[in-house]
């Protein structure tokens, strides 16, 4: 049983060995029938894996699939864009209404009305002393 690192055989057929490693491996192969056998098996398998049945490409079907998929994607995308445009319009309208409401506070007379309101409240709200009602004491 050879305890040579068998991973090197795989790297060898994949062309991933450094030149020095190739030399070491080839030297070992000269004297080891076990590794030679395994390498030959790997080479057969490697050839089979490289030469699997040709893949038939369904060009027409692929083109159809592409067209319908991107039709859907684009439609969905542009529809969602429209919705978000509507949302944008709604946002602008809301903010202009809010600005209009704020403007109300700066209307001329607004302060007057406000002050008048508070002075009325002050007057009515103030509890009158009975002495004030009957006049000063003489």
């Amino acid at each position: 049983m050879c305890n040579f690192n068998k991973t090197l055989l795989h790297e060898y057929i994949d062309g991933e060995l450094a030149p020095l490693e190739v030399q070491i491996l080839e030297e070992h192969l000269k004297s080891c029938s076990e590794c030679r056998k395994e390498l030959n098996q790997l080479k057969i398998l490697d050839w089979d894996l490289h030469h699997q049945d040709a893949i038939e490409v369904p060009y027409e079907q692929l083109a159809q699939l592409r067209k319908s998929t991107f039709d859907d994607c684009c439609r969905e995308y542009w529809e969602s864009q429209e919705t978000s445009n509507l949302a944008e319009v709604y946002k602008i309208q809301t903010s202009s209404m809010l600005m209009a409401v704020n403007y109300m506070h700066y209307l001329p007379g607004a302060r007057l009305i406000k002050n008048a309101g508070s002075s009325t409240r002050n007057y009515v709200g103030k509890r009158l002393n009975w002495r004030q009602l009957i006049g000063p004491k003489r």
Binding site: L62, F70, Y77
Partner: peptide
């Protein structure tokens, strides 16, 4: 820019290779 025709141009030349990958 999500321009519909551009996706056909972009993908049509690659879909064969993509399919081979998926099928393999």
């Amino acid at each position: 820019q999500k321009e519909r025709e551009a996706f056909d141009i972009l993908l049509s030349s690659y879909e064969e290779q993509l399919y081979r990958l998926c099928f393999h």
